[in-house]
Design a protein around this nucleic acid. Structure first.
Length: 646
RNA sequence: GCCGUUGUAGCUCAGUGGUAGAGCACUUCCUUGGUAAGGAAGAGGUCAAGGGUUCAAUUCCCUUUAACGGCUCCA
C-alpha cells in the first residue's frame, strides 16, 4: 500500500500502481468524470499514470490552469488528427497550449498545398466528429533508436530535429484515434471532453521562430468543455475589440492615419493633443521635482555622430535612409541619446555637477518594418519621454532607484496594477555582434542593476539576450485591459557610450573620469502610452486627462445663453468645457456626450437658470444632483489638480 | 521583411460583368423637448491605385499600396 496526500492534507491509502483517475473514482464518480490530468509531486501527468510510491496528488480539472493547458494541448492533437485526415502527408512541428490568448496552435508543413480560411470550418467539423469518437489518448514510451527509425522512414525532418535534443527515457508518443505524435504530454483521458471547438485563425510562422527558416502554417484554435463557455469566450473577445485603442482613437478623435502621410505616422487630432499636453505637464512637474533640467535638440544629425555613438552598425536598418546635403549625410534621429551626450560634453563638468540629469520629450523616427506597425503601439514617428542621467559609479544605485520610484509613482497615478520589470541582460554568445564586446563591464553593470532591483523589492524577472547593445536594461512590461502585453517603458544602463563620446568629468582627485549613463523613459512614448491608456480606461479618461472635461447641455435653445455663461465661467478656471448648442432633445445630447466619454455633463434648463445652478451628470454613473456653479467648479478643479482617477 | 485576409459615402457595412445602396454622421426645415437616439427633405462615392481580359470591369486576372490576423523585430 502507498500513501497519497491530497491538497487538503488528507492522506489516503491505495494499492501500488493506482492511477489518479482511480483515486478520483474512489472519492466520487462525479469528480472522476471531470478529471483532465493530475499533478503528482508537483509534476503534471496523465490521469491514468500509475503511482508507485507515496506521493502528493492534486487532481486537475477545468478549474485548474494546468487542467486547461492539458485540455488545449490535447485539442491541438485532435486538430492535428483532423488536419492529417484532410491533408495526408502533412508534417507537424509543435502544438502547444496558450495562456494568452487562450487556446492552442499547431505548426505544420503542408508541402505544396495551402490551407485557407474556408478549410478551417471543414476542419472544425472534422474535429467535432473525431472528438465524438471518444478516443483515448494513449501514452507509449520508445527508445531513441526506435523513434529515429520511425521518423526517418516517415521522412519527417521536424520530428527528427526534436528527437536530436532528447535522450532515451525522455521519449514518449501519444496516440488518439488515427493520430500518433512524439509528445511529452500530458493529455486528457479522451477526446470526448472536447465539446466546443473554434479555429480562430491561420497564419504563417517561421520554423523555430527564425526568419531565415522556412515558414510553416500555423493554425490557432480554442476549445471548451461546453458550448456555453466557448460562446462566453468569444463574446469576451468581441468586448475586447470595443476597447481596442485603434477603434477608440478614431471614435474619440484622438489620432488618425493617412495614406498620404505614410504608414506608422499618426496625426494627433485636437483631442489627442490635449492628452499629450497633459502628460507632458505631468512629466515636466515630476522631472523638475526630481532635479532634471529640460533641453531641446534637433530631429536630425550628421552620420558622424551615429558612427561615434556606435548606433549605425546596429541600427541602420531601422533608421530612415540618410539625406545628403553639402556632401554630408544627415539622419533623422532614432534616439535622443547622442544629442544629449553632446549637451553633456558642451561644457567642462566637475563631479560637483553630477548627477547631471537632462530631459526632453524627444521626437524620434524609426523605420520599423512594415509588418511590425500596429496602431499607436508600433509607429515610425514617436515622442519619447526621454532623459539621460550622467553620474558616478557611487551615485548610480541611488539614481537608478530614484528612476524606479518615479515609475512606481506614475503607475499609481494611472492605476497600473499589473506590471513586471524585466531585467534584460546580454547574451554572451552574441558579444561583438548584438552586444558591445565588453564581457566584464556587462557583468559588472548587470550586477549593479540587479542589486537595485532586489533592494527596492519590485517584482522582476531576468531575461538573457534582451539587453540594449550598450548595456543592460529594465523593460517595464504592462498589460492593457484587453490582455495585450507590451513593453511600456525602459530604463537602461550605458557603460559604452560615455567612452565612445569621450565624455568625462573631473573627479575629486582632479582626474578625468567617464560617467555612467542612465537612459530612462518612464512614460515610454506618447504613442504607446496613449494607446495603452485608451485601452486601460476604455476611453473613459480621468477628468485631468479628458479632452473635453465638461459639456454643458441646454434643455432647449432658450437656455443656450445661460449654458454659455456657465461654460465661460468654467473655462476661466482652466476647465475644458463646451456647450452642446445643437437643436436636439436632451436625451440625444446626453447619449452623444456619454458616447464621447465626457466626464461631466451639466444639464441646464429653466430651474437651473433661475437658481444659478447646474444639474450634474457623471459619465457612466447618471444623475449626480443639482449644485451651484461654484460648488461644481470647486469640486472639479480639485479633482483635476489631484489628478484623481475617479 | 515573411505567410494569410481585406480595401465600396466621414463611420459601420450590403451589393453587382451593363458606371452603386442601407443605417448613423453631415446640411436645411419642422419641432423647444428634463437625463442614452423626435420628424421630414437634401447633399455626399474615379467602388484603394495602376495595368490586363472584355463590346463593356467597382465586379474577373496581374502588379502596387494600405490596413488587419500572425511570425520576425521593438519603445
Amino acid at each position: 500500500m502507498i500513501n497519497i496526500t491530497l491538497p487538503d492534507g488528507a492522506v489516503r491509502q491505495y494499492e501500488k500502481g493506482v492511477s489518479p483517475l482511480d483515486v478520483a473514482k474512489s472519492i466520487s464518480e462525479g469528480l472522476a468524470k471531470k478529471v483532465l490530468a493530475a499533478n503528482i509531486n508537483g509534476q503534471v501527468c496523465d490521469a491514468s499514470r500509475p503511482i508507485n510510491e507515496d506521493a502528493s496528488l492534486k487532481l486537475l480539472t477545468w478549474n485548474d490552469a494546468d487542467g486547461q493547458m492539458t485540455f488545449w494541448h490535447s485539442s491541438a492533437h485532435l486538430m492535428a488528427e483532423a488536419v492529417e485526415s484532410m491533408f495526408p502527408g502533412v508534417k507537424f512541428w509543435v502544438g502547444p497550449a496558450l495562456e494568452n490568448p487562450k487556446g492552442f496552435y499547431y505548426d505544420m508543413d503542408l508541402g505544396d498545398r495551402k490551407m485557407t480560411e474556408e478549410d478551417l470550418a471543414a476542419l472544425e467539423k472534422r474535429m467535432n466528429e473525431l472528438a465524438k469518437k471518444n478516443s483515448s489518448y494513449v501514452r507509449k514510451e520508445m527508445s531513441k533508436d526506435e523513434a529515429v527509425k520511425y521518423f526517418s522512414e516517415k521522412g519527417d525532418e521536424y520530428k527528427l530535429d526534436l528527437l536530436s535534443n532528447l535522450n532515451d527515457g525522455e521519449i514518449t508518443f501519444y496516440t488518439q484515434g488515427n493520430f500518433t505524435d512524439l509528445c511529452r504530454g500530458p493529455h486528457i483521458p479522451n477526446t470526448s471532453f472536447i465539446k466546443a471547438i473554434k479555429l480562430t485563425s491561420i497564419a504563417g510562422a517561421y520554423w523555430k521562430g527564425n526568419e531565415n527558416n522556412k515558414m510553416l502554417t500555423r493554425v490557432y484554435g480554442v476549445t471548451y468543455p461546453t458550448q456555453k463557455e466557448l460562446d462566453e469566450h468569444l463574446a469576451m473577445l468581441e468586448e475586447a475589440k470595443k476597447r481596442d485603442h485603434r477603434k477608440l482613437g478614431k471614435e474619440l478623435g484622438i489620432f488618425t492615419m493617412d495614406d498620404d502621410v505614410g504608414p506608422g505616422l499618426p496625426l494627433w487630432m485636437p483631442n489627442g493633443t490635449i492628452i499629450i499636453e497633459e502628460l507632458e505637464k505631468l512629466a515636466k512637474e515630476t522631472e523638475l521635482a526630481a532635479g532634471y533640467k529640460r533641453v531641446v535638440t534637433p530631429h536630425i544629425a550628421k552620420e558622424s555622430m551615429y558612427l561615434t555613438s556606435g548606433h549605425l552598425p546596429y541600427y541602420a536598418d531601422s533608421m530612415f535612409p540618410p539625406m545628403e546635403m553639402d556632401g554630408e549625410k544627415y539622419y533623422l534621429k532614432a534616439m535622443n541619446c547622442p544629442h544629449h551626450h553632446k549637451i553633456f560634453d558642451a561644457e567642462p563638468r566637475s563631479y560637483k555637477d553630477l548627477p547631471y540629469r537632462i530631459a526632453e520629450y524627444g521626437t524620434c523616427y524609426r523605420y520599423e518594418q512594415s509588418g511590425e506597425l500596429f496602431g499607436l503601439m508600433r509607429v515610425r514617428c514617436l515622442h519619447m519621454n526621454d532623459a539621460h542621467i550622467y553620474c558616478t559609479k557611487e551615485q548610480f544605485a541611488q539614481e537608478f532607484k530614484a528612476v524606479n520610484d518615479m515609475y512606481l509613482k506614475y503607475f499609481k497615478i494611472f492605476g497600473v496594477e499589473k506590471y513586471v520589470m524585466r531585467l534584460s541582460l546580454h547574451d554572451p554568445a552574441k558579444l561583438g555582434e548584438k552586444y558591445i564586446n565588453e564581457p566584464e563591464l556587462w557583468l559588472e553593470t548587470e550586477e549593479l542593476v540587479r542589486s537595485v532591483l532586489i533592494e527596492t523589492g519590485v517584482p522582476y524577472v531576468e531575461v538573457k539576450g534582451e539587453g540594449a547593445f550598450y548595456g543592460p536594461k529594465i523593460d517595464v512590461q504592462i498589460w492593457s485591459a484587453i490582455g495585450r502585453e507590451f513593453t511600456l517603458a525602459t530604463n537602461q544602463v550605458d557603460f559604452a557610450q560615455g567612452r565612445r563620446f569621450k565624455l568625462s568629468f573631473t573627479n575629486q582627485h582632479n582626474q578625468p573620469e567617464v560617467p555612467l549613463i542612465i537612459h530612462r523613459a518612464p512614460l515610454g512614448t506618447h504613442e504607446r502610452f496613449i494607446g495603452f491608456l485608451l485601452e486601460h480606461y476604455a476611453g473613459k479618461f480621468p477628468l485631468w486627462l479628458a479632452p473635453v472635461q465638461v459639456k454643458v447641455l441646454p434643455i432647449s435653445d432658450k437656455f443656450i445663453d445661460y449654458a454659455r455663461a456657465v461654460s465661460d465661467k468654467l473655462k476661466k478656471a482652466d476647465i475644458r468645457s463646451e456647450v452642446d448648442d445643437r437643436n436636439e432633445k436632451i436625451g440625444k445630447k446626453i447619449r452623444d456626450t456619454e458616447l464621447m466619454r465626457v466626464p461631466y455633463m451639466l444639464v441646464v434648463g429653466e430651474k437651473e437658470m433661475n437658481e444659478n445652478k447646474v444639474a450634474v451628470r457623471r459619465q457612466g454613473k447618471g444623475d449626480a444632483g443639482v449644485k451651484t456653479i461654484d460648488e461644481f467648479l470647486t469640486e472639479a478643479v480639485g479633482e483635476i489638480k489631484e489628478r484623481s482617477s475617479e
